[in-house]
Amino acid sequence: MDQVVQKPAEIPGYTLAITAESLYLLNLLAIPGLAFLILLWLFFKYENSSPLLGACHLRQTFSASIWAGVLLLLVNGVIFAVGGYQTPYTWVIAVLYFTICHTTLVLLGLLGLAKAIAGQSFHYPLIGPTC
């Protein structure tokens, strides 16, 4: 059982990686805005000065959070601006779009968190930078 080379928790930047992924999820689920501000602060403070694992998760979640804001707020705003509140199909498209988009973003966050807990790096497809 002990053939694991290194325990995940001993990899440098482990705590920062988990914190970044948690903030990304909190921003989507519990405290939108506030969690992003904390992530923003962490990003500018540690992006260049932290170990590889932490910096990678930080860059990924920062970029993905910005994309999440655009995809969820802006696009939904556009849907209602174009469709108006009075037609049922606006609601159908908005509900479906928001549910699918938000859920996908949360699922990516869960995968990212699972990678962070395992001490591995994770790349958000399309919405994350390479690192």
Binding site: Q3, V4, L110, A114, K115
Partner: peptide, 16 residues
């Protein structure tokens, strides 16, 4: 359900 999902993927990520 959150915890379950993270649990399942973490376990597979750190499989021996």
């Amino acid at each position: 359900f959150f915890v379950l999902t993270v649990f399942a993927f973490t376990m597979v990520n750190i499989r021996c």
